[in-house]
Design a protein around this nucleic acid. Structure first.
Lengths: 374, 374
DNA sequence: CTGAAAGCGCTTACAG
DNA sequence: CTGAAAGCGCTTACAG
């Protein structure tokens, strides 16, 4: 084995940058090419004001020697960091939802040659932030263009970043503001309310008249989904039932509890919107155990469109959330912030959609009055 | 709303670093404190050779002004990057498995005050790597301490990094070497073979005598799992059946196909080890559709311990893979590489374990001969 | 214990 | 089109 892994380290003609000599700085290249460091720099940066002959000579040396410019020197002299920080707050893991946001960020940054620093941070809504408690990248200046705040956040940390003069953009859907309104500046959101309304329209369109929302209204984001759902149904003169579960160990368990409540207290319901996909998974499980068929006996809809649910049986109809787009939008917004100085106009809300799969169908007892009233 | 978000930006006594004056460099601090920049630097770096009085004066200025040192200047002069790069190769997303590895990396790096740059990269096993095709952070020098290679990788890229003189450590389990042996240097692996053997011992211990492995042996990592499984069973004089499916759209579908084959060709089997958890999910689904009960009719075991499967019904018994530990080990190994110059000794294999849940039980027809022979 | 000075490796006016 | 020189903001021998 050693053989193979060594053998291939031989000089392969310079094509892959095996060092012919030690040319580590622009001065080394300059000396070898018989030009000044300034000229090497110009070639490196693609300035047109360089004679082709000179340029070729320098380029050849660079390629042969495998020279790569020192990024810290570049950043220091250019005055900008060339990096942004994706900060996942108050989460134990990169779950599939935030993973997609991260991918959106990374994809955009790759195109604009910016590095993405990944960091995590846990804090409470009333914490202060002594210097040694915050992520390393925040403790120094010019380490990052700014912060992309994902995960769950509270106003205290946003204020802290403001006081630091550190630009940031946050994922707004999971910001906990208490009784305060969501700020619209530096905030990237998708329209949770209209996602709920879309779900309402979808289920009502299938002919459902007796609908229920199942979720934890203690969380503002779920409350917004419910409000949208209710508003959407109001247009069809329908008032949804509500199963508000707040004390579950996790959202899957919450779903199971919600389904138990559903069977007990809402036995005439023909369709349910769960607060999110994971909750819907829990409900599906509990319904199965109870011998209730989805969608034959009841239609079940999720919210988020996490990848895992397409493999459920039945596959889950859900509200699509533009996760990659959220990431991309957060990144572009941060760079726009730099250009335009301080806070620009509010970022437009991103629009959700419906992913139709197998967990929703027309209700068993089709109610003609829907169309008479509609 | 605007009110709230502005109001809190007022000076809160300097505690949160609201700038009293513009003190942006060590020279500014030095002038204000009546000392030299060198002394400010000493305070910043915690040197003991500074008079308490001087130190306090400087510290006070730093705190009041919210001064943070320029990280690029520090890195340039110190000569090390203060960052490492987590490179996810040939993957469309951060799935839960790699997400846990990333968390292991980030957790460790946070403790040692290193930033983690997250990047993705797609390439083929025969690609060359012209400068503009590789991730930005690789194109410059001193941008990173080295590369942590996760995802699926091929030797050509490792050789390329070697030729660049860029230190790296790779996640070995998903390295595709063709017919070549896995290198042990710079390689962090968990012991896939022994995970398979553990699964074998577990199932045999439950009394199973007719067992099957379901997976894609075209992938070396699944082949290693199978080999371990077979070796483990050999100790009980059992030869497992094999369902080798190679043409599935994804591992879930692969599982469904495998289950169909199982029912058709291995109807006497009492236990199955799936190549991974996702495959087991597919099998579980297909078995359910066929009216086969798990574990009553057949025991089913996964491999990986991804978080999603604990909510399955029945919850899935699986092979635990130390994902966070893999991440942590990759990071420590990279820093060790820097200390000890070039390649140190091989990294020890990380050990898998068994997570016992509900999908495995004793076989319906308990075969006494197991104990007679064992 | 502290300061003056050099230096990290680039880029960019400023001249020519 | 090209070079000499200054400067980005730190840290670190070297003196004292």
């Amino acid at each position: 084995m050693g053989a193979f892994w060594s053998v291939r380290r031989r000089n392969d003609g310079g094509r892959q940058g095996v060092a012919r000599r030690e040319l580590k700085t622009v001065y080394d290249i300059a000396r070898a090419a018989g030009v000044s460091a300034a000229t090497v720099s110009r070639v490196l940066n693609g300035y047109v004001s360089v004679t082709p002959a000179t340029r070729d000579r320098v380029l050849k040396l660079i390629e042969e020697s495998g020279f790569r410019p020192n990024s810290n020197a570049r950043r220091l002299v250019r005055g900008y960091p060339g990096q942004i920080c994706f900060l996942l707050a108050n989460r134990a893991m990169v779950h599939s939802f935030h993973s997609r946001i991260l991918m959106g960020v990374e994809n955009y940054c790759r195109q604009v040659a910016q590095d993405v620093v990944f960091a995590t941070f846990r804090y409470g809504p009333d914490d202060r932030f002594p210097n040694d408690s915050v992520p390393h990248i925040i403790r120094e200046r010019s380490g990052t263009e700014g912060i992309l705040l994902a995960g769950t956040n509270y106003p205290n940390f946003l204020h802290f970043l403001t006081s630091l003069g550190l630009p940031y953009v946050f994922y707004g859907n999971n910001l906990v503001t208490g009784s305060l309104e969501l700020p619209t500046e530096r905030c990237v959101c998708f329209d949770e309310h209209s996602g709920g309304a879309l779900a309402a329209a979808w289920l009502a369109g299938l002919g459902h008249r007796r609908l229920v929302f199942a979720g934890d209204l203690g969380k503002p984001w779920y409350e917004r989904r419910f409000n949208g759902f209710r508003a959407g149904l109001a247009e069809c003169a329908i008032v949804p039932g509500l199963i508000d579960v707040r004390d579950a160990a996790d959202t899957f368990q919450l779903g199971r509890q919600a389904a138990a409540t559903l069977l007990r207290d809402h036995s005439t319901a023909t369709a349910v919107l769960a607060q999110d996909d994971q909750t819907a998974c829990g409900m599906l499980e509990e319904l199965r155990l109870a011998g209730v068929q989805v969608p034959a006996d009841i239609s079940l809809m999720g919210y988020d469109d996490i990848g895992e649910i397409q493999y459920l049986h039945p596959s889950l109809t859900t509200v699509r959330v533009p996760k990659e787009e959220i990431g991309r939008s957060m990144a572009t917004e941060l760079f726009r912030l730099r250009e335009s100085g301080s806070s620009s106009q509010p970022v437009p809300l991103l629009a959700p959609g419906i992913i139709a799969r197998d967990s929703c169908s027309r209700p068993k007892v089709f109610d003609e009055t829907v169309f008479k009233n509609g």
